[in-house]
Amino acid sequence: MSVTILAVAEQRNGEIKKTSFETVRKAREIADGLGGTFKALLIGNSINDTAKELGKYGAGSVIAVNNDKLTHYSTTAYTKVVGEIVKKEGAEIVFFPATALGKDLAPCVAARVDGAVAADCTELKIEGGDIIATRPVYAGKALIDVKIDAPVKIFTLRPNVFPAGEPSGDEATIEEASVDISDDDLKAKVTEMTETSKGKLDVTEADIIVSGGRGLKSPDNFHLIEELADVLDAAVGASRAVVDAGWRPHDEQVGQTGKTVSPALYVAVGISGAVQHLAGMSSSKYIVAINKDKDAPIFQIADYGVVGDALEIVPVLKNELKKTLGK
């Protein structure tokens, strides 16, 4: 009997994020490589139309679980749903995006279905019928190759690493499944959601990040970073030094005690490049460094460096990009 592979996709307010498309695409590729049966799973309320979207990224069929008690995320209820679907489908391999939801849910599901999780994977390959996953440890200062030895093998995939590819014209077939949710399953539930970024991108999701450090000299100069980020449709990041100093909120911090990121372009402005910061961003595809000190460690890993005062360079860079990009 062929192996069944499941990819758990995520929607928020009826919208599927790019990270779920990335996960579905990669999971499909692995399923094809193993000659297995592949299905995606989407959980929420009235999400059948949303679920069809997943077809464009390789999901031939999507199991849709609709329930008004699942409109908002609940670790306990979503764990029950995924657990029951995994058992019902006899899935032996399960993928999640390594988003806030995926990272929260995957270990709970693992305990429920006698599984284990390889978290935040950045590479997957098939060797002799087994999946070998590569995952960063020590915030990317080292990489480990792992193999899961458990009845259900679960992988969470780091955002922005596996390409979602171009959407096809395919629409997924929807298989509706129902799971009973009692009050006991809602021991933990989301009662409200507050936006923190005013519609701006989170650093973990962004293709481009513009980060600022002490070289900006004062929190009042951070508007230069925000404006440059605006021109590039980028997220704003920060070094630990400026977060510790209270200049920026901690959710912008990139580094070992902040967020580990892998965007296509990382612009480090006035950041010298402490070991713990470099660990969090050195897997970015392209790195630009703007720093006064030509000996700063950040230049050791930067593809393009400009030596000089960030306060003088950033406004010029913003205008030049605006002109070039026609904004």
Binding site: G115, A116, V117, A118, I132, P136, V137, G140, K141, A142, L143, I144, D145, V146, K147, I148, D149, A150, S282, S283, I287, F299, Q300, I301, A302, D303, Y304, G305
Partner: peptide
Amino acid sequence: RVKIIGMKSPPEKQPGK
């Protein structure tokens, strides 16, 4: 249950220009 097969250093980034 998650068996480590091996650990390696990340690919070294060549300093650019």
